[in-house]
Amino acid sequence: MNVLIVYAHPEPRSLNGSLKDFSVKRLEDAGHIVQVSDLYAMNWKASLDANDSLDRQPGARFDPSLDSKRAFKDGRQSQDIALEQEKLRWADAVILQFPLWWFSMPAILKGWVERVYAYGFAYGVGEHSDARWGDRYGEGSMAGKRAMLVVTTGGWESHYSPRGINGPIDDVLFPIQHGILYYPGFDVLPPFVIHRTSRIDEARFAGVQDALGKRLDDLWKTAPIPFRPQNAGAYDIPALTLRSDVAADQIGFSAHIE
């Protein structure tokens, strides 16, 4: 299988760097083909702007969505964007690996999403009508592919527990897992999270490697998070709210998981 690791940490000798190298070796030893987009090493441009389209008229008003749509449709995107899109097409599975900074991914990785997820590539696809609202949330250009987060945090596991001060880790990661990965159709696996990174000694590092290795070995066996598909009947369209008889006693993120 083809695996793309999109990696965002500025220090190659960090815990993240060591785990990324471990993942590449583990996957390749199992016979998989691996590509790594090391965003800091690539000097990835994080900001989505007018320069992402190669044929804009000087002085023209920049419209992020419409310019993205035209550039993707006409093959006039900047080359760095097009190359990353090709990697996504190639991949059977995608791993996003990053440290949790201020309750989200590093800016460079968010910028990768904003630029690579072009209109017509990852969003704005499919029929929009009173029966369907596009190919998204379980459908779309990434349907049939798997995705997983590998995330490190400085906080304790208890800080991200159901009653922890930082909020449940599944809630913290919901915008990424549901909104960035499930939206264009990925089957999203439960995340692999390493807590309290500043307290990892040699023995604990060995345990983290073992646990991550098992997750990588089971990349095609692990059941995905059972997010509710948008167009399968659970949601009223075009309001895109859950039907009154679906998860009637639930609100918030958990209502969107079967």
Rank of each mutant, 00 (worst) to 15 (best):
E202V: 04
G124F: 06
S37W: 03
G154I: 02
W90F: 07
G140Q: 03
F186M: 12
S254A: 15
D171K: 08
L54G: 09
D92A: 07
Q230M: 09
Y119I: 06
A60N: 10
N51I: 12
V94Q: 02
R215L: 09
M148P: 01
K145F: 00
P238N: 09
D52Q: 09
Q85R: 08
K45C: 09
G31W: 09
D80I: 07
I165D: 12
Y137A: 01
L19H: 03
Q77L: 12
L189K: 08
V6T: 06
T152M: 04
S68D: 04
F253C: 09
I257V: 13
P224F: 07
I237T: 07
H9A: 02
T222C: 05
R26M: 10
V150D: 00
N2W: 05
L240H: 06
Y182R: 04
L173H: 00
K110N: 11
P99F: 00
R215K: 15
S23L: 03
G59W: 10
D38H: 08
A239S: 15
K87P: 04
L83D: 14
A147N: 03
I176E: 01
D21R: 10
A147G: 09
A147M: 07
V3K: 00
K214R: 15
Q209D: 08
P191M: 06
L83V: 12
M42I: 09
E114N: 09
I194F: 11
F62G: 10
A206P: 05
N231K: 05
H256R: 15
G154F: 01
T241H: 11
L173K: 01
V3T: 00
W112D: 02
Y235V: 01
S53V: 13
V151I: 04
L83E: 15
R26E: 13
W156R: 12
A143I: 05
A60P: 07
F205M: 11
S78G: 12
A147C: 08
A122Q: 00
F205T: 01
G138N: 10
H9Q: 03
A239L: 14
V193H: 06
A60V: 14
S78T: 14
A50T: 13
S18G: 15
V208G: 02
T241R: 14
T241K: 15
P175H: 12
S68I: 01
S129K: 03
L212K: 04
Y7C: 07
Q57M: 12
L4A: 01
R136Y: 05
A131R: 15
S104I: 03
R163Q: 13
Y119D: 15
V193Y: 05
Q209K: 15
A131L: 14
W44M: 06
V208N: 05
D249P: 04
A91S: 02
F98E: 00
G233F: 07
K145P: 01
D170M: 12
V24I: 13
A30P: 06
L173A: 02
G31T: 10
S104D: 06
R89S: 07
G75K: 01
Y182G: 01
V3C: 00
A30Y: 09
W220A: 15
D92E: 09
A8G: 11
F72S: 04
P184S: 05
T222Q: 06
H9K: 05
R146L: 04
G75C: 03
G124V: 07
F72R: 02
A234G: 08
H159T: 10
R61E: 14
H256L: 12
L39Y: 01
M105V: 08
A60R: 13
I108L: 09
F174C: 04
A223Y: 08
Y182W: 11
E157R: 13
I108M: 10
